[in-house]
Nucleic acid binder design. Sequence first.
DNA 1: CCCTGCCATGTTGCATGCAATCTTGCAGAG
DNA 2: CTCTGCAAGATTGCATGCAACATGGCAGGG
Lengths: 227, 227
Amino acid sequence: MAQERAGEAGEPATGDVSDRVYAELLTRISEGEFAAGERLFEQALARQLGVSRTPVRDALKRLSAEGLVDTTPNKGAQVVSFTAEDTAALYELRAQFEPVACRLAVPRLGEEDLAELEDLDARMQAIVAGGHDPAELTGLNNAFHAIFVERCGNRHLAIALQALFRPAIVTRTFRQYDPRSLERSMQAHQQLVEAARAGDGEWAEAVMRSHILSTRHVTGHPGTPDD
Amino acid sequence: MAQERAGEAGEPATGDVSDRVYAELLTRISEGEFAAGERLFEQALARQLGVSRTPVRDALKRLSAEGLVDTTPNKGAQVVSFTAEDTAALYELRAQFEPVACRLAVPRLGEEDLAELEDLDARMQAIVAGGHDPAELTGLNNAFHAIFVERCGNRHLAIALQALFRPAIVTRTFRQYDPRSLERSMQAHQQLVEAARAGDGEWAEAVMRSHILSTRHVTGHPGTPDD
DNA sequence: CCCTGCCATGTTGCATGCAATCTTGCAGAG
DNA sequence: CTCTGCAAGATTGCATGCAACATGGCAGGG
């Protein structure tokens, strides 16, 4: 859900079933169904998803390349586990690089992208207004941020940035959502949409930077919202 | 040849044969044996390397995730081809980020790493002094730069940076080596080793930045040396 | 002569079988 | 009681068979 877009930015194109499995595993990881450090067995997943081991294997390899699972030669894959320092560093890097991607992307956004941003924003606000479902919100938020990364204009920068950002979906699950920060994030998203509509990359960059920084120092304790 | 280190930084660990195939394809691509845009057929490569299609498939997927080959759903993989703008942007990003990684890495380098840096530097100088073999030099240079990236202290930053840098090995093959820039690069490498020995991250950062920038503006024409 | 539709070939993608390796539990010696 | 060695189970990694899709050539019609 929300990751069902065929080609995000990297080279996701593999097969048909393979992509389904990948998407499934991705959402399961992001929704916290798999604990950090939990081993992922090919055969078990294959049975569960009603497919062969091959596409599962492919998906795990892909997740491994993206840094979402660790694989050891003859032992298989397990969900990454982060130390507090890792998480902090991750946010630090994000705060530095994502705004840049944002600035680069804004002038390149088409009407389609803008519409999607608005749609995602609206859906997130709807969730916040009603009953909170953190998992679903995480997915939408990822999609929201992904748009800027994907459209930054340089394939390899996009790949590199996604390598940085994707692991965050693992850490995020372990935090609660506090209403105050959440509201602030929603406002930031709205402002991002506005800046994007205005085609003002620098504005968007600034908003994105403050958006991320605002979540950084609360990292760990009371709970960061979706950034 | 220089890529034979088991685990670079990302999650390379797969199998035994699989890694061999990956390394082989990587060097072939970097040495320009495969033209840009050339299709890579699984079966053909499998026959050539005396293995099954499976490890070849794995290796191609890995290269795809790293942005070295493009894959289309039912068509397979082909070597990436860059526009001039892509290459320029790549160097731009490199100039921004690699020095940072370098600064972070230097304080973390152990005696072993320093020795390897010196060794690589020495071997590159030997090649320059004798008959030039650009291909071999490229491999050594990649290994040299990789050390800084790998030791930067953050796994995910390392992955992200490698996503940026690895594609450069494709573009580099298409340039000639001009003695003047080459000499300058060698000096930069030496200075990097010195800075690393001194544990001076900022110095190393500055050297690395100028090192990369010195190669940037000649990109395309007369030929950049190995950066 | 050019264009369109079909058919044959080739290639990828998925499923499955087998061997090598690692892990886990137990038995036996100290 | 603890530690070591072994053996059985389990899991990954590699090889191969089969079906689906894409590509290229050829024939037929305009």
